[in-house]
């Protein structure tokens, strides 16, 4: 069976679901940020696939902008994690429930 758009939909959905599972399962804040990157990449893959199918360059530029935003997000997110580690000496997200009290 030749590869068609449905295969890319399934692959992208699978990667996205793995990212969601990881973000819900782990307690390490860095791993959760990595799972978010995984979800962004799954979306990028689907955008490129549909760009190829419909021969349209706009989707590939959206992938480019998603990469830009992801890079900025990672820079700020890791800065926040480093600052948090300096305060509480842990990256465990279960410690970060101070707003609850």
């Amino acid at each position: 069976m030749p590869v068609n758009s449905t295969h890319y939909l399934f692959l992208s959905l699978l990667l996205f679901s793995i990212g969601i599972m990881g973000a819900l399962m782990r307690r390490n804040a860095i791993i959760i940020l990595m799972c978010i990157e995984l979800m962004l990449n799954a979306t990028n893959l689907l955008l490129v696939a549909f760009s190829k199918i419909y021969a349209d360059a706009d989707a590939q530029l959206f992938v480019f902008f998603i990469m830009v935003v992801a890079a900025a997000e990672v820079a700020v997110g890791l800065a926040i994690i480093v600052m948090m580690y300096r305060k509480v000496h842990s990256v465990d997200i279960n410690i970060l429930n101070r707003l609850k009290h």
């Binding site: 030749p2 590869v3 068609n4 758009s5 449905t6 490129v48 696939a49 760009s51 190829k52 199918i53 419909y54 021969a55 349209d56 360059a57 590939q60």
Partner: peptide
């Protein structure tokens, strides 16, 4: 299912 466009496009 949309078939992948096999003709070589150079949009990428």
């Amino acid at each position: 299912p949309e078939l992948m466009d096999k003709t070589s496009t150079n949009i990428g």
